[in-house]
Design a protein around this nucleic acid. Structure first.
Lengths: 190, 190
DNA sequence: TTGCTGTTTAACAATTTTGTTAAACAAAAA
DNA sequence: TTTTTGTTTAACAAAATTGTTAAACAGCAA
């Protein structure tokens, strides 16, 4: 892998996987095994590296589920896939969303992105259809998305904290997470 | 309010309310309207201030719900209260959990806390009883806690991100959050 | 008053973190 | 071969951040 990509991937590793949001350029360089000056060479400044990583994370979050959503599998299976894809990403990058939140809050983001995801729109329509059919409860389809993503992401994102608060050993916690797909599906389809 | 408390409260304001996790001692001092040296006077170092704030946050998270859980209201009302209390706290401190996660990940926390919350234990027992009664679905009671806290917290914590991703204006988002109590209760009691 | 105590501040020092520059290097082109 | 181009490095400079110190200050007690 070329060094530029390596630096970016390593930064993501630190931020999204290890939740190490305070990483300095030196720490990133060390983790990547490159000279710190390379970060300035390829990204000009620490801030620009962060911006790059940020934007790529947003993009990947947006596009992550396109394939699933546009597939013409029936709704229930589609949700199963939705959960699978999301879970797999969470396993790799549990803190990606946390990083994004922190960045958005830190800078007073004058972000221009206004392009509403077409996939999302499609998904919302599909949810509405199912609500009409009575497969799922009837309210604002966004609330359904809230429910779904909350049930998938939150227990994973909060793992280190909830392990402490609920006093659950690591293995037990992993086991609980592994069972969540079925529990979420049960929950959603009453 | 005495300056020591003022500094602590201001730090919490920045971390928990504004999600500004990168705050420097100077920024905290400015926000509190005190001389930066006071932080060192009262807390010795930046790190000790962080530790203090961290531990108070964990404690408050633990004790936050004790009253509700030990009250002898019936289960359904109790959950309603549980949601109310949680939501109120989230309104004030939406990023408290995010801060804790970040801190835990940053330091390689050699944290000693092992005192399992008695309230939690009591709550889990109560959930099990309801599962036996058939009021709610039957699985590991921890999963019920996961579901409940996820549905309550996640949409609030992710607000700035989901506003962007889902392209929802601020007021609409607040409205959606306001409706969540009922939706969560509906969801849990099938 | 003086002396004692705890609080607050500015000035300074030390450290950490970031950014720049010029030189070294390597591989391909002329 | 020399030149060119892009990459990599160490050394330096600049900036930002933290920690320390001594003096100023305010209130109260002796």
């Amino acid at each position: 892998m070329n060094k530029e990509e390596l630096i970016k991937q390593t930064a993501k590793e630190l931020f999204f996987s290890k939740g190490y949001l305070h990483a300095t350029t030196q720490e990133i360089a060390d983790a990547a095994g490159v000279n710190r000056s390379l970060i300035n060479y390829y990204f000009r400044s620490r801030d620009l590296l962060f911006q790059t990583v940020y934007h790529e994370a947003v993009d990947s979050l947006k596009s992550q589920l396109d394939d699933v959503i546009y597939g013409n599998t029936p709704f229930k299976e589609k949700l199963g896939l939705f959960i699978d894809v999301h879970m797999k990403e969470l396993q790799k990058y549990p803190y990606r969303e946390s990083f994004l939140i922190t960045e958005i809050c830190s800078k007073n983001f004058a972000l221009k992105e206004k392009k509403k995801s077409a996939a999302l729109h499609h998904f919302l329509k599909e949810i509405e259809v199912e609500m009409e059919k009575g497969t799922i409860k009837k309210y604002d389809p966004i609330q359904f998305v809230f429910n779904l993503t909350s049930l998938i992401s939150f227990p994973v994102i909060m793992m280190p904290l909830y392990q402490k608060l609920l006093d659950i050993p690591k293995e037990k916690y992993s086991e609980l997470i592994a069972q969540r797909k079925q529990i979420i599906l049960d929950n959603i389809f009453n």
